[in-house]
């Protein structure tokens, strides 16, 4: 017992010595383009061995990443509504405290009243906790996905960016350089490639042969997914929302959507071709949660399929989907000048 205590103490001392001698600190602050501090921003430092250290900024926008083993790091930062920040080749030596202040550039319209960061944060944080209990099943024993769902907020480990072919990378860069002025949704054209949308409400209505998803924020605000065993038509005309069929793989509904035109954008700014296939896997592990995994496969644009994951939560049945008639008063188009 005494031997064990001595051994443990030695390990502790060695660790403490390593922490003091072999490690350094990155500290700094995160500010927006108006030089106002950004609270709640995520900071991540990743070293050459793949170790990841995380922090979140306080109300003054300050962060500290202590006890980083000496080495080279890539520092990345992000917060909702800002352009992601990344800086490579930051060297930390033992005992060093390095200051790295992070400027976050504005990206989308999240200072606009009603779509401002504070509002969106408060909406997410005040969402009703989903109910607990087993997932309901239909009369024929399949999971019943019906319900009003708060759009998925991705969970789990950090998701990879799409791995683009060179031509697609060039197009995406041009679009970013132009501040996304030509985005289809700015012209009130459809923008969801999957049959559910993020953040906003989705109402799923399931019968044996058909699943209808009603999307609060898209044009049009619905998708039809055939569950009756039919295949995709062989002579599909390319369309904005494609053709969707769904099949059960155990308790997971696997929805395959093909037949897209190439006019929508994939993710924020990436192009895609009419070879795009979107596979949406929906699984309701319990009453209050819907796991959503979306795979974008397009050999014309992507080096490998791009996968995103998220979890939708069940909203109170009193949540109703309201209309989004985007073309009612779209004054923006003629004023989108880009740079």
């Amino acid at each position: 017992m005494r031997l064990l205590a001595t051994a443990l103490w030695s390990v502790f001392l060695a660790h403490a010595a390593f922490a003091q001698v072999g490690s350094g600190t990155i500290t700094g602050s995160v500010a927006d383009s108006n030089r106002a501090p950004v609270a709640g921003a995520s900071i991540q430092a990743k070293n050459e061995t793949g170790s990841v250290y995380k922090a979140v900024t306080n109300q003054k926008g300050e962060y500290t990443l202590p006890q980083l083993p000496a080495g080279k790091y890539e520092l990345s930062a992000g917060s909702f509504g800002f352009k992601p920040y990344a800086r490579k080749d930051i060297s930390i030596e033992a005992g060093q405290t390095l200051r790295v202040d992070v400027p976050l550039g504005d990206f989308i319209s999240l200072d606009t009243l009603g779509e401002d960061r504070a509002g969106i944060r408060s909406l997410i944080s005040t969402r009703r906790q989903p109910p607990s209990g087993p997932a309901p099943r239909t009369g024929d024993g399949k999971p019943d996905l019906s319900g009003v769902w708060y759009g998925p907020v991705p969970g789990g480990p950090a998701q990879e960016e799409p791995d683009l072919l060179p031509w697609a990378e060039t197009v995406a860069k041009e679009r970013f350089d132009n501040n996304l002025k030509d985005a289809p949704q700015a012209r009130c054209l459809p923008f969801n490639l999957a049959p559910v949308n993020t953040f906003f409400l989705n109402k799923l209505v399931q019968s044996r042969d058909l699943l209808v998803t009603i999307l609060e924020y898209d044009i049009p605000g619905y998708r039809e997914i055939y569950l009756d065993g039919r295949e995709h038509p062989k002579d599909l005309d390319p369309s904005w929302t494609g053709h969707s069929i769904g099949k059960w793989d155990g308790d997971t509904l696997v929805i395959e959507t093909v037949g897209f035109n190439d006019k929508t954008w994939l993710g924020e700014a990436n192009p895609h071709t009419d070879k795009l296939k979107v596979t949406t896997r929906l699984k309701r592990p319990d009453l209050g949660h819907l796991e959503v995994e979306i795979t974008f496969d397009d050999p014309g644009t992507l080096k490998k399929p791009w996968i995103t994951k998220g979890i939708a939560t069940l909203a109170p049945a009193t949540e109703e989907i309201r209309e989004f008639i985007c073309n009612e008063n779209n004054q923006d188009v003629e004023h989108l000048v880009g740079k």
Partner: peptide, 27 residues
């Protein structure tokens, strides 16, 4: 806050906005 923040860091990649702020307005 950390939970929300991490979610949002991922979420921003696919959050649709009607139009890009910087395409139309000068911050």
């Amino acid at each position: 806050l950390l939970g929300i923040s991490m979610c949002l860091l991922l979420f921003v990649e696919i959050m649709p906005a009607h139009h890009s702020f910087t395409a139309e307005y000068d911050s």
